[in-house]
Design a protein around this nucleic acid. Structure first.
Length: 258
DNA sequence: TATAATGTTAGACT
DNA sequence: AAGTCTAACATTAT
């Protein structure tokens, strides 16, 4: 569910609240999350985003959380009964962090070494046209799948891939290697508009995204194509269509996205 | 009842 | 060999 802007929102909120604090207890309520009780006793140095992964950096190791499709993090000041689908409880002296995940796809791990970096590590800091073109050389997969490949570009998922491609007026089905230089430049510009705005809006709440304190984001007010099949394209008035790419719903305007 | 859901990846295929 | 595609993961909502 959460993509780069949503994960960025959580990391910023977490930083403000747990940096410098000690983890006093870890309760794993879903065995599939694995053996992570070892992080109990650690002190949080900082919380950092890597793509869609949340890195809780402790003094010695890094505790990572990936929310996948339906994972949420929720901060609670008081201890009450945890909400349904709570899979993990990380307690601090002043409150606790809950991982809630109906579909149970979310994952956690403890690591000491950094994994291999994506070719473009942080599109929030820029999605440079020149690099995109260079990486896309010889790759015939659809440009939307290219953008969503986490080994290539870290953090972009289905909503923001659709929105960036619309803003850049590029057809999501085009082979990545076939884009002209001018189109890559438009992609760079589009990302520089869409991603920072989504972060300012604290993410996109179309169904169930909530921030660390349970509040929805407001970026859904800025969506132009995602889940808008049949409505009019805000740029050219054409009809927004839905296709399937890499098994995912893909919304675009065939009239102005070339 | 069938389908789709904001993600990733192992294994199959080219 | 490297690039690409598909099914699977588990559950809820429409």
């Amino acid at each position: 569910m959460p993509e780069l802007p949503e994960v960025e929102t959580l990391c910023r909120q977490l930083n403000a609240i747990i940096s410098g604090k000690k983890i006093i207890k870890v309760e794993v309520l879903d065995r599939r999350l694995g053996d992570i009780e070892g992080v109990a006793g650690g002190r949080v140095a900082a919380v950092v985003r890597r793509g869609k992964t949340i890195e809780i950096r402790l003094d010695e190791t890094t505790f990572e959380i990936h929310l996948r499709m339906t994972g949420r993090l929720l901060w609670q000041d008081e201890t009450g009964p945890p909400p349904p689908h709570t899979r993990l409880v990380v307690s601090f002296s002043a409150g606790r962090l809950l991982l809630i995940d109906p579909r149970r796809f979310a994952t956690c791990r403890v690591r000491t070494e950094a994994p291999p970096a994506a070719l473009i590590e942080n599109p929030l800091a820029g999605l440079p046209a020149g690099r995109l073109r260079e990486i896309a050389r010889g790759r015939r997969l659809p440009v939307k799948n290219f953008l969503m490949d986490q080994r290539l570009v870290a953090g972009i998922g289905n909503i923001y891939a659709c929105e960036i491609l619309h803003e850049a007026a590029v057809d999501p089905r085009r082979p990545a290697c076939s884009l002209a230089q001018a189109q890559w430049r438009r992609m760079e510009k589009a990302a520089a508009i869409i991603l920072p705005r989504a972060v300012e809006c604290r993410g996109t709440t179309v169904s169930d995204w909530r921030d660390l304190f349970g509040a929805g984001g407001t970026n859904q007010d800025h969506l132009r194509v995602y889940a808008r099949e049949g409505s009019a394209c805000p740029r050219c008035g054409g009809r927004i269509e839905r296709a399937k790419l890499a098994g995912r719903g893909t919304w675009f305007c065939p009239a102005c996205q070339k």
